[in-house]
Design a protein around this nucleic acid. Sequence first.
DNA 1: CATGGGATTGACT
DNA 2: GTCAATCCCATGC
Length: 188
Amino acid sequence: MNPSFYDRPVLEVAPDLLGCVVEHAGASGIIVETEAYHDSEPASHAFVGLTPRTATLFGPPGRAYVYRSYGVHAMLNAVSEPEGVGAGVLIRALEPLDGVELMAARRGGLPLRSLCSGPGKLTQALGITLADNGCDLQHGPVVIRSRPAGWKRPPVSVGRRIGITKAAELPWRFCVTGSRFLSAPVRL
DNA sequence: CATGGGATTGACT
DNA sequence: GTCAATCCCATGC
């Protein structure tokens, strides 16, 4: 998907990414859960302004922002909105598509449903690391492409974002309705 | 320079 | 349901 796709309000990009495919290192999955983050709102890393950590978020749209959470997990975001605005879409869950055996090997052979049902899980399954921070999502190594044949625009459920304390009331989480591969049920 | 707080997960009770 | 693991980096003294 080209950079202009991401050069829009992050609240449009986040639901539009549902059904698209994330691909890296021989494995891929269909996005079934996203969350929007924006520098105007305190749950976003970009809320603190432009720092070395948030530079990618304020950079041009269509790149990957990868950061470490709880000292352990890598999180994948798609940088959105024009350069100078700190906004991104957190990819929270995938439905495994290709390279299932490879993903299972990376994750220790768990059942299909638990392979990518969480932001830290899917980066582990796809082999995405902090080294991928800033990479171009059109050319890779981490690639996001449009919905595979047979996938129409899926029905979307909206809810509150997960695991945050600030701005927790905003309904900025988007899930494919009824998907069995979500990280948690949709809640408001 | 020291400190503290996470956009989480998995193991255990 | 509870809880530790583990590290980056923004903030404050």
